[in-house]
Amino acid sequence: MYRKIGLFFLSLWLFFILTIIITINIPICFSENSEFIGFYELITTNIIPLICILCLFIGLISYLDFSYILKGATQMPFSITHIENIEYEHLTFLTTYIIPLVCFNFVNLRYQIVLVILLIVIGLIYVRTDLFYANPTLAILNYRIYKINGQFKGGVRENIILISRDKLELNQRCDYIKLDNRIYYAKQKIV
């Protein structure tokens, strides 16, 4: 469960970066009489960007954890009997969630509260419906998404979601790591 939550933070990296750009307030003055406003003032005027930096850090830890588990031992290989590229899911998540959220009014406290509530609700939906594979950040990091049927040791499994850095094809043999009941990380079987 914590990995899914971490991948949710990872999926919102673009949102956090855009929010930092929109909301950061660092006064810059080059006159002779200028002086530093102080750390307290700097921090209190940049709460939202600091929270976004924390969320970026959580996403980074999640990505490092994700990369670590993918280096682990794989299950018995399977053969792909049907394959469908569903990389459009990345774009769907981006246009449905991230772009509209960036248009929020970050100045008004009520809108900030609504934004937090929306992020929590989207996160709950994202984790409970296993949509963590539809992650635009993973697309940027060169991962692909496939929906496959496969011949496994125990029989045929249908509608499996594969996350892979490899370009997978029909009848190809793959090693895999099970991330969830129907979501696997797969890589080409090296003979």
Rank of each mutant, 00 (worst) to 15 (best):
S67C: 11
L60K: 12
A73N: 15
P49L: 05
H82S: 15
E89P: 11
I61K: 13
I51R: 09
T95G: 06
E41C: 09
Y97H: 08
N108R: 02
T74L: 06
F66E: 05
I53G: 03
K71S: 05
P77W: 05
E84W: 07
I113P: 13
I47A: 00
H82E: 15
G59I: 05
N46H: 05
H90T: 06
P77F: 02
I69N: 06
I51V: 10
F57T: 04
L109M: 12
Y63T: 04
I113C: 11
E41P: 08
C103T: 11
N85A: 11
L91R: 00
I86H: 14
L54M: 07
R110P: 14
V107L: 14
N46M: 06
I43F: 03
P49C: 03
Q75L: 13
L50E: 01
M76E: 15
C103V: 11
Y68H: 08
Q112L: 13
T81P: 08
E41R: 03
I98K: 05
N105M: 07
N108V: 09
F66Q: 05
E41N: 12
I43G: 00
L70H: 14
Q112D: 10
T95M: 07
F93Q: 01
P100G: 11
F104T: 00
Q75R: 15
I83P: 10
L94C: 07
H82R: 15
I113H: 13
T92M: 10
I86R: 13
L91F: 02
F78N: 09
I113W: 14
F106L: 01
Y88E: 08
E84V: 07
Y111H: 09
V114W: 15
T81L: 00
S67I: 13
M76S: 15
D65S: 10
I58S: 05
E89I: 10
T74M: 10
V114M: 14
I58M: 06
T96Q: 06
G72H: 04
F106V: 03
L70Q: 15
F66C: 02
T45A: 03
L94D: 02
G72D: 09
Q112K: 12
N105T: 07
I61V: 11
Y68A: 03
Y68I: 11
L56W: 01
L60N: 12
I86T: 10
F57P: 00
Y63S: 03
F66N: 08
S79N: 13
N85H: 09
R110D: 14
G59W: 06
I43Y: 01
L60A: 12
E87N: 13
I47G: 02
R110G: 15
S62Y: 05
Y88F: 10
I80D: 12
L42M: 02
I48H: 01
I99F: 10
E89M: 13
T96E: 03
L91A: 00
G72A: 05
F106G: 00
A73V: 14
I98A: 07
A73I: 14
I86F: 14
L109I: 12
T92D: 12
P49N: 04
N46A: 06
